[in-house]
Design a protein around this nucleic acid. Structure first.
Lengths: 240, 240
DNA sequence: ACAAAAGTGTTGCTGGTACACCCATGT
DNA sequence: ACATGGGTGTACCAGCAACACTTTTGT
């Protein structure tokens, strides 16, 4: 039985293709680390269907805007930040995910330093929430958040992106607590230090913590140059 | 300086939002393993702009179709297969990526057994290509392919999905060669065996290769039940 | 008999884990 | 002086890498 030739977006002139009303958006999962807690930046939804619930920061993609640019614009407009870590995670395209129509959204993971940004808090009803406190969200945003938390857990073990969440200079305790927050496990302090030192990614800033009510710890920073060199020699292992 | 409140897809009724002509598609990167070579299934483009070049198999997403369903439909229509491994990888949304207009596409990674499927080869100008032979493709499909190859390399080391590319029963040589093809490295045979046996994921089928002109090897299959049990106890490590 | 690939063990090294005591600072 | 967390070393164990010879089958 011979099947009719199937249409193909890549071989059929687009004028011949059926078209209909799609909306395309980006949603940013913006993580920050504040007072030893992993947080995410949310906005209160004022759509009737989700009155009082929290949602991610998003916006429609503009006609002449790349997808990545759209997410960057949302970040910049909302937090005043530029140059933050920002990476696509996944696209959510269930037919009924938005009550007002067919909206496909691409989720982005952003890591920001909560001290740097200037929130338009009054204007926007933006708030930082502890990730572990969030139980329900508008739309399918709880699923998107969970997906991005999982992506974050995986990615901090593959690339040294975790430093984007910390101040320029940080103590090893800061770093360890942040790892523990994100991964939900505890590490032995001595082994953690050894492991991090042997990565060669920490630069000793020759400074100490100040204003702490205990013995002050040394401060370190992420050694970008060392990282660039290490990357060149990296090798891919086999693991199940 | 007070900024005006920004629009937000999640807080603004959709009727008020600007809309314009988007097209949304899925493209499938279909990998197969044939005659000891990693291959990808492509179709010849007949768009004038890309005459004679190869492109991925894709189609527009339908108004009432989930994104994942669209990719599954493409696979089913083209290969006659059902139940194959299929997973979203990334969405490509550059403004000018399609010459006919604004087309955002979501790339899916598919792993199929080349023996199982029934290609509509004559109808569709479909061909298997060695991944390493492909130098240029239509649209941004070369980038999409490279992204999916990298995703495949990463994922076969995280989850035992590689078995989707093999026959139900396979020899350890088949498995090792496939790993080597995908990762582009060579492994010591003895160490490879030990490693794979200690995963506990191989079931001894108590059968031998046949019709080989050397000593026949034992055949194994992927032990799904064992894998399900192992997954429950799995633990997340720390690694840079 | 020859060609081709299967099957098999040991050793050394590296990296992870478990674990306890003294030190510097603020109150 | 006390509370808090900083800073350090060692011993054991597991997993990885390197490495060579014998066995089975087809021709």
């Amino acid at each position: 039985m011979k099947e009719a030739r199937k249409p193909n977006i890549n071989t059929t002139p687009i004028e011949l293709m059926p078209s209909f009303q799609f909306a395309l958006s980006v949603d940013c999962v913006i993580f920050g680390y504040d007072q030893d807690v992993l947080k995410v930046l949310l906005i209160e939804s004022d759509l009737p269907a989700y009155k009082g619930q929290w949602s991610l920061l998003g916006d429609l993609v503009r006609p002449n805007e790349d997808l990545d640019d759209a997410s960057y614009r949302v970040l910049r407009e909302r937090t005043g930040l530029t140059g933050m870590f920002l990476e696509q995670v996944k696209t959510f395209g269930a037919v009924s995910r938005h009550p007002a129509g067919r909206v496909i959204t691409t989720a982005y993971l952003a890591l920001v330093n909560v001290r740097d940004h200037q929130l338009k808090t009054l204007d926007n009803a933006l708030h930082w929430h502890a990730v572990s406190d969030i139980k329900t969200m508008a739309f399918d945003h709880q699923i998107i958040l969970n997906t991005c938390v999982a992506a974050l857990q995986r990615k901090i073990q593959e690339e040294p992106i975790i430093f984007n969440l910390l101040e320029e200079k940080f103590s090893l305790r800061d770093l360890q607590q942040l790892f523990e927050q994100i991964l939900g496990v505890a590490f032995d302090r001595r082994n953690f230090r050894k492991k991090l030192f042997t990565t060669g990614l920490l630069k000793d800033e020759k400074e100490m913590e100040k204003m702490v009510r205990h013995r002050p710890g040394k401060l370190y920073s992420f050694d970008r140059k060392a990282y660039e060199q290490i990357k060149r020699k990296s090798f891919v292992g086999l693991q199940f």
